[in-house]
């Protein structure tokens, strides 16, 4: 199981637009990726390609989340997705 911690850079948190960008990126990965708030048990992690699950996390600017994936390409997938979270999509 590969794990990567990322900090939400979007100024208004993981709301609809950044969540949409992230969910789409997650759906494009060759492996299934889960997301959870840091400190929450892995079995409660949510599907990272679900925009509703992402919004339901209530992650705000600066919140740390854990991405997890298994299998071939997991490390690269997590790296790519962490980069999406660590970009401020609200910057004009």
């Amino acid at each position: 199981m590969a794990e990567r911690i990322a900090t939400i850079a979007s100024r208004v948190g993981l709301h609809a637009r950044p969540a949409a960008i992230f969910a789409e990126a997650a759906a494009e990965q060759p492996v299934e990726v889960t997301i959870a708030l840091e400190g929450e048990p892995a079995e409660e992690a949510l599907d990272a390609s679900s925009i509703l699950a992402l919004m339901g996390l209530g992650a705000e600017h600066g919140t740390r989340v854990v991405l997890r994936a298994e299998g071939e390409g997991a490390e690269a997938a997590l790296e790519a997705l962490a980069a999406v979270l660590e970009t401020d999509h609200d910057a004009a």
């Binding site: 949409a20 969910a23 599907d47 390609s49 679900s50 925009i51 509703l52 699950a53």
Partner: peptide, 8 residues
């Protein structure tokens, strides 16, 4: 994306 959301 919400309309096709897997969780939903």
């Amino acid at each position: 994306l919400m309309a096709g959301d897997k969780t939903l």
